[in-house]
Nucleic acid binder design. Structure first.
Ligand code: ZN
Ligand code: ZN
Ligand code: ZN
Ligand code: ZN
Lengths: 121, 121
DNA sequence: TCACAAATGAAAATGATTTTCATTTCCATA
DNA sequence: TATGGAAATGAAAATCATTTTCATTTGTGA
């Protein structure tokens, strides 16, 4: 296993929220950083192993990474215009933990998203 | 949009639990059915559109499909072995509705999934 | 300086999924 | 029954994220 290239972590921080390996790579290129795609993948994997970043999957299957420390939140998305509101998890956080615990699961995570039509649509 | 080939649904039933498109295809081949991989993919997509099957992602990103009861529910999935527990929404249903209403949204829906490591993993 | 391990990245390989497109199957209507 | 167009089919090619290979570079301690 190789160690993570610090510039990858720094770029993921700067990206804010979730970013895929490809996006991190493109972002670094755009900023003139010289790095190989392979190193981006290896670094992100390493950061996941070290539990410094979280990894999820987009609907299309692409892996997306995010700093674990980032404030956890969810989204309320308008199906019409795409407007998005960041919302606190609130009740759902406890619900997810309780359900998981009831079934003997550990290292628990969750995803949740609300969608509908906003007042303008 | 094409309609689902009924043999695909029948095979997915027989598979029990989750199966990927590739697995459904291999299973049909092994049973001597003549079908193209493309048709398997198209049929599964169509079944998802019609909400007859659920689709999730394995940790490696491969899409897996499964027959889904009509009742609205959520899933608790083991990241290790893929075991899945169907769970009632409970608290999350109200949470989603309330959050949406607070922001003036209507025609509200939501997605939620819990994942972790089961007691056997 | 030397030797050796770790890091790097270009290019090829992998593997799931999608797209293309020519062919076949259905089906309604004349 | 014949026929024309729509829908379904599937083989092959294309796509695209991710992994693997492997030769080269870099870092580090003796
Ligand atoms: Zn809107
Ligand atoms: Zn949450
Ligand atoms: Zn498990
Ligand atoms: Zn629900």
């Amino acid at each position: 296993m190789s160690r993570s290239n610090p510039r990858v972590l720094s770029t993921l921080e700067r990206a804010g929220g979730f970013a895929s390996a490809q996006e991190v790579y493109r972002l670094m290129q755009r900023e003139g950083e010289s790095i190989g795609l392979t190193t981006v993948y290896r670094s992100l994997q390493s950061l996941v192993n070290d539990k410094i970043v979280d990894v999820l999957r987009r609907d299309d299957g692409e892996a997306i990474y995010r700093l674990c420390g980032d404030a956890h939140h969810h989204h309320l998305v308008c199906k019409g215009c795409g407007d998005t509101v960041e919302i606190e998890g609130g009740a759902i956080e406890k619900w997810a933990l309780n359900v998981a615990k009831d079934h003997g699961f550990r290292e628990v995570g969750h995803t949740a998203e609300i969608f509908g039509l906003c007042s303008k649509c």
